[in-house]
Design a protein around this nucleic acid. Structure first.
Ligand SMILES: NC(=O)c1ccc[n+]([C@@H]2O[C@H](COP(=O)([O-])OP(=O)(O)OC[C@H]3O[C@@H](n4cnc5c(N)ncnc54)[C@H](O)[C@@H]3O)[C@@H](O)[C@H]2O)c1
Ligand SMILES: NC(=O)c1ccc[n+]([C@@H]2O[C@H](COP(=O)([O-])OP(=O)(O)OC[C@H]3O[C@@H](n4cnc5c(N)ncnc54)[C@H](O)[C@@H]3O)[C@@H](O)[C@H]2O)c1
Lengths: 220, 220
DNA sequence: AGAAGTTTGTGAACAGGAGAACAAACCGGA
DNA sequence: TCCGGTTTGTTCTCCTGTTCACAAACTTCT
């Protein structure tokens, strides 16, 4: 039933490219705010911190939005990338687990400006209910189904302790959420049609530590 | 000291493998806490959410720590991976920018238990000084040099607004920090010998949005 | 001791991504 | 209109990472 596999529509963009498009978008927004109307692949590549050949190849998956001999129209390209990613309209998001991290996330203004709208903050602890964080009331976790249904929420954020994360994910999946961003340091098991991305600080620090250790091992 | 480039010592572990070692380590810690003494590559692979062939190949870069027909000794493998990553001793870390996110990070107990020790919290805003977060006093950003020197800090975390991030990174590099974890949504420019890793929520959400949009594209 | 069963470690095929290089396309000036 | 300069879009090659498949090595049972 899906048009995902239809021949005309199925410009399959490589995962590595998808992961860089938001970076290009951010760079274009900055350029636009600085009043730059046009930029070359080289300029944009520097702003995004990538190789210009890679940038051009990435953009070529979206179509031919540049002009040879000239470069790219900043606002036009910005719109095209935003459209491709799907952030020309806002996506409703629920955050579950309003502790240290959940509160920081709720207060983060970057969500709103980048295509996402926090529609609810949920927590299992009654002591947190009716508390207001970033202008949004914290509500019982049991309200999940109703909220997801009422706001057509597709994306959920998990900021609970690791032990609770799988349960929260199961509940999210059961009520129709199909994309999850997980901050808890645990592997989530979900059906194949559900996308999960994880953010794990400790892993990032450990990767740095590995390289740091190697740096230390120098020949006298 | 020992040579990074020496033939015997230079077991070059692929980046993709390095990024997964912390996941294996976490899974092993969990297994160990559950009282499991031994596990097969298949069991560990499930716990880590990866393919068992990939897991075995990854581990083979470290050496032969398993026993054919039996599997791996959980505690022994755990130690070997921790040693390889370099988290058998604690790494001192400084966090700069003690706002919403910086405070959440400072309060995060997972740092300590995974090989890192927060030795200082720094902020440019005088209003935040002498405030105590997670039992640590917030100090002026100017104290960076002294702290880095006194505690031999190699790893810095940036949780300031994007506009300040490059300046903070420059100061960090100038006083000897060689690994940076950046939460600000901006591209940092640093010398080649400095490692930078970034964590960007908005990018993760946008990647989810891209796939979500494609899921939505159903025929009738 | 030998056979049957299990699981690791790894060679080899395969897939995907990165970067160099260049033809095609565009601009501006004469 | 033609020419030189510029920049894109794309092809080709190389490299890294993934997965399969299986011999080697170990355990257990008879
Ligand atoms: N704080 C950080 O900087 C940080 C960094 C990296 C990872 N993490 C991870 O993020 C998660 C949250 O960290 P934190 O520091 O905010 O923890 P926290 O303890 O401050 O907050 C967790 C919140 O989740 C709520 N909760 C618990 N079980 C729940 C459930 N079943 N349903 C709904 N809500 C539930 C709790 O009531 C609490 O409010 C943890 O898994 C932690 O490992 C945090
Ligand atoms: N809050 C989140 O959940 C979240 C999520 C993703 C990304 N981020 C990013 O993390 C960063 C911090 O976010 P936040 O919500 O904590 O912001 P914040 O404004 O609450 O905190 C920023 C802190 O940095 C300090 N600061 C500013 N300039 C400084 C400088 N030059 N040196 C030292 N300290 C300085 C400020 O005094 C403030 O305390 C931002 O770049 C934000 O985009 C935050």
């Amino acid at each position: 039933m899906s048009a995902r596999t239809s021949p005309e529509n199925a410009r399959d963009i490589p995962e590595a490219t998808v992961a860089r498009l938001p970076v290009y978008l951010r760079a274009l927004v900055t350029l636009s705010e600085q009043g730059t109307a046009t930029c070359s692949s080289e300029e944009l590549a520097v702003a995004a911190g990538v190789n210009s050949a890679k940038l051009r190849k990435d953009l070529s998956y979206l179509g031919s939005y540049g002009t040879r001999g000239v470069g790219y129209d900043v606002d036009y390209l910005r719109y095209q990338i935003a459209r491709e990613i799907g952030v020309t309209q806002d996506w409703p998001v629920v955050i579950v687990g309003i502790g240290n991290l959940g509160q920081a996330l709720a207060n983060y203004s970057g969500f709103r400006s980048r295509g996402f709208r926090v529609v609810a903050l949920l927590d299992a602890d009654p002591a947190r209910h009716d508390q207001v964080v970033a202008g949004i009331e914290v509500r019982p976790f049991d309200h999940l189904e109703r909220i997801v249904h009422d706001h057509a929420v597709a994306i959920g954020v998990i900021a609970t302790p690791a032990v609770a994360a799988q349960d929260v994910a199961d509940r999210m999946v059961a009520c129709g959420i199909t994309s999850i961003l997980n901050f808890a340091p645990t592997v989530l098991t979900v059906p194949a049609e559900v996308d999960v991305r994880k953010v794990d600080l400790s892993i990032e620090l450990q990767i740095l530590a590995y390289h740091e250790q190697r740096k230390g091992a120098v020949t006298a």
